[in-house]
Amino acid sequence: MEQIITKKVTFKVFRFNPDNDVLPYYREYKLDVSQEDVVLDILNKIKWEHSGSLSYRRSCRHGICGSCAVKVNNKGVLACKERMFDLIDIFGTEMTIDPLSKERAVKDLVIDKEDFWKKYDSVQPYLVADVDAHPEKENIITPKEADQLLEADYCIQCGACYYSCPAVEVNPEYIGPAAMAKAYRFNGDIRDTAKVDRLETVSQMGSGVWDCVKCFECAEVCPKEVNPIEKITKLHLQTFEEGVAENNVATRHAVGFKRSIAKHGILDEGDLVLYSEGVCGMPQHLPEAWNMFKNGKLPMPWALPKSKNLDEIKKLVKISSTAKF
């Protein structure tokens, strides 16, 4: 008979019932975890055998409804998909299970996702198209056209990326990786007609693509491998392609790299900031610039580094450029 391998794991589980508790607290459970267990099996075991009042969301148990996402040792996971032995490999045998957002805990591991859904709704997360109610032939999408979605349609709105995004954490206006991936999903759909509308939404300063910090947390955490930051980059590119990109500090900064590379190969860092900010935007940087100057961090204009074989770089910038601003 095949032997069942088990490991003893100590779980600290976030508990909070606003009806009775002034503050959240952790309750500890020591459980045997077997090779087949996913995180949801552990939550079920705790609820069914130890603590009947534990609340958490669950529904399909097949990685498709997106309701059971939680955090284990700060790693966002889809509870029904994440294997316990994989987590033991990363973290060892002491684990803390938290809601995706402690601030938004309604009870125990259940959170209020209102902020997530509001932002999700803001990008028109649906197909906008004149659909013929009585078509005479099939509306065929070729495999190549379907590939353009880059599997953005795999997103199940679990919120793991959104509640792991550091930009969202410090900037409540930022619409976050899930909404962006969804905007790309429909912008990449050849039947859709609202591409420019969506680009205008996602290129807003303060809330849109330019507020992504490029940390790749979303790519790392996504249980469906949607790779939201790849879609955010695509949206950046689309704003230039479609002429939606406004002339502002962020767009000038992106374009300024090309300008600077064409000049010296290596960046002229001071000039890049000046080009991005404009003269009026420079005073705010002066205290730092002075500090940098004092400490030998600003090369003099006549001593700026330049790449060797600069002619090659200039030629490539000329022949390989594909974007306009």
Partner: peptide, 14 residues
């Protein structure tokens, strides 16, 4: 001979 890597910003433009 190397140039700037684009620092994820050129990647947003071209």
């Amino acid at each position: 001979e190397a140039s700037c890597c684009g620092a994820s910003h050129l990647q947003d433009f071209d």
